[in-house]
């Protein structure tokens, strides 16, 4: 019972949605499926929030190493949640100023927007920007011409990187742009690499992925792969 009903649900829902592709009367089902998912995922926030609270409250009550950081997590979590859910500081909606809950929760002027602007955005954007540093260290450490494959990888990266600065095109500017060797100008060369080699490689990867996804989906729908239900083998 514990395992059978879920398998029946998976198979039924899956079959219905696949059939919907070929039966016009059911064509709206796939859109519904996507909306339903987003709703369930939003409800699941209760579980995520519960997990977050449990982890950090435990650290706090155990006085674990670094419990003060758990206090920061919990504090910032609750403050953000409260100001967001209760729309604290939200200006009225100009079209309906008489309805107190009609204003936007993230309008400029709300406390929630302040948190977004001065906490959320700088923190996440800086984390994103850290990538530039890691790219440099990866280029230094990992791009070594150990074998022919590695030479291809770093050689291509080299050409493309060069082609994206003003220096690159300047190096090959002496090649006449209309002649037979125009293709060797750096900007043309990097365009050619992207256009031909990159397209070929990406196409094969994408075709392979599609096959992998089809086969994985099929196994899931047939109940062969049910690890997500805790039925690994």
């Amino acid at each position: 019972m514990k395992r059978t009903v879920p398998l029946i649900i998976t198979a039924t829902v899956g079959l219905l949605l696949i059939v919907a592709n070929f039966v016009p009367a059911l064509s709206e089902l796939s859109e519904d499926g996507t909306t339903f998912f987003s709703i369930i995922a939003a409800i699941a926030f209760v579980l995520g929030g519960g997990s977050l609270l449990k982890v950090h409250l435990k650290k706090l009550s155990d006085r674990d190493r670094g419990w003060a950081y758990s206090l920061i997590v919990l504090g910032s979590f609750f403050v953000t949640l409260v100001v967001g859910l209760f729309k604290i500081g939200a200006p009225p909606n100009p079209a309906y100023p008489d309805k107190p809950w009609a204003g936007g929760y993230n309008e400029p002027g709300t406390f929630f927007n302040w948190i977004y602007e001065y906490l959320f955005y700088p923190l996440t954007a800086t984390m994103f920007a850290m990538l530039a540093f890691y790219i440099a260290s990866a280029a230094f450490r990992a791009f070594r011409a150990k074998n022919f494959e590695a030479i291809l990888l770093l050689g291509t990266a080299f050409i493309i990187l060069l082609g994206q600065t003003a220096a690159g095109p300047a190096l090959t500017n002496w090649i006449p742009p209309d002649g037979p060797f125009a293709g060797l100008r750096l900007e043309e060369l990097s365009a050619y690499v992207m256009d031909v080699f990159n397209t070929a490689g990406s196409r094969a990867i994408v075709i392979g992925i599609a096959l992998g996804i089809a086969s994985t989906s099929l196994k899931i729908l047939m109940g062969l792969d049910r690890s997500y239900l805790g039925g690994g083998n």
Partner: peptide
């Protein structure tokens, strides 16, 4: 910044490979 960062990357790749060899 783009230009200097790209040149730095190119130098790093070359340096890394010289070191390696």
């Amino acid at each position: 910044p783009q230009l200097s960062a790209h040149i730095l990357m190119l130098v790093l790749i070359v340096l890394g490979n010289l070191t390696y060899f």
